[in-house]
Design a protein around this nucleic acid. Structure first.
Lengths: 173, 173
DNA sequence: CGGCAAATACTAACAGTGTTAGTTATGACT
DNA sequence: AGTCATAACTAACACTGTTAGTATTTGCCG
């Protein structure tokens, strides 16, 4: 409860919160362990009491993101179009986090990268459950993920009524 | 023609070549100005005689990539499916470069990021030319870009005959 | 209640990064 | 040959992630 103690009390949570904020403010590439420690008011090495390193911290962040994405999809029912729109809603609400989850967080080879791939695969499961063939599921995933990426990167303007526009793009063909 | 001169002669091209190699070997995040200078056998600040900085160098790299992607699409004719497969072929042949072009190279705000967005938009033009509506073009772009990203990130295994598999995914619905 | 161990914070330091300032060598042109 | 822009260099700064070693606080156990 205290405000200023030697033992911060919930450094881990505070770091993750600061990281989320920095993530959405400046993008994943700008995440800096030292800057986070500074923001939370702690010396840089203290971070290592709660995370094995910057990469582990970003992985924890991604884990949060995948849980939230799953909740979005969960709440969208069983209509593929609605699930797709929920996927897009999550990405648009947390663009920095989404990039962290699906861009190359830091590395590709390490165990961290391997877990990221597994988490992404898990995020794919709800889509796979909605359709008949694996090809169809991959098609839908690619479509929705690609659209999310393009939108997040500012490549698709999205005027007024963005959801209608996204719906129109998704329902083409 | 000489081997070792004070004036390297074609440092710019050598740096770009080394960068391409590092890009495909270790991914865009690992690009290091000092490492590139080292690889080419030159002091780090010499790079600044040819590029305004690391970001400018990566942008030159991306520019190369967009030109090559355009060539791929150019050579694919006018069938949307074939163009899509050509798009995927480029991404699969140059995964690191593709990530550099469509991931967030370094920043988002700066003029570099703005040019990147413009280049991406230009890459979209050939797709737009093949279909009737803008919505349809965005649909196709999202689909093919999303699939490229998933494949590159190892999210879609692609057994034997990868092209047939990609074709099957693209032609769903 | 005193003391001890674990948890958690700290400072100091190392190697690496991008970048700038200031200096020196080279190549080309008059 | 002499001049000058080009393109290389060395030295330095501020920043990064990370490690080692040290101090403080908390919670528990006697």
């Amino acid at each position: 409860m205290a405000e200023r103690k030697y033992h911060h009390g919930n450094l881990r949570a505070a770091l993750l919160a600061a990281a989320r904020q920095a993530l959405e403010a400046n993008g994943p590439a700008s995440l800096s362990l030292r800057a986070l420690a500074r923001a939370v008011g702690v010396a840089a090495p203290s971070v290592y009491n709660h995370f094995a390193g910057l990469e582990a911290l970003t992985l924890a962040l991604a884990r949060e993101g995948f849980a939230e994405l799953a909740a979005y999809l969960e709440g969208a029912g069983h209509d593929p179009l609605e699930v797709g729109l929920a996927y897009l809603a999550f990405a648009r609400s947390n663009p920095g986090l989404y990039r962290l989850m699906f861009g190359e967080g830091r590395r590709d080879d390490s165990a961290e990268g391997e877990e990221l791939r597994a988490q992404r695969k898990a995020a794919f499961a709800p889509i796979l459950a909605l359709v008949d063939s694996r090809e169809m599921a991959l098609h839908d995933w690619a479509l929705v993920h690609g659209l999310a990426s393009l939108v997040i990167d500012g490549q698709v303007p999205l005027g007024e009524d963005p959801e209608a526009q996204l719906r129109a793009i998704l329902t083409q063909r």
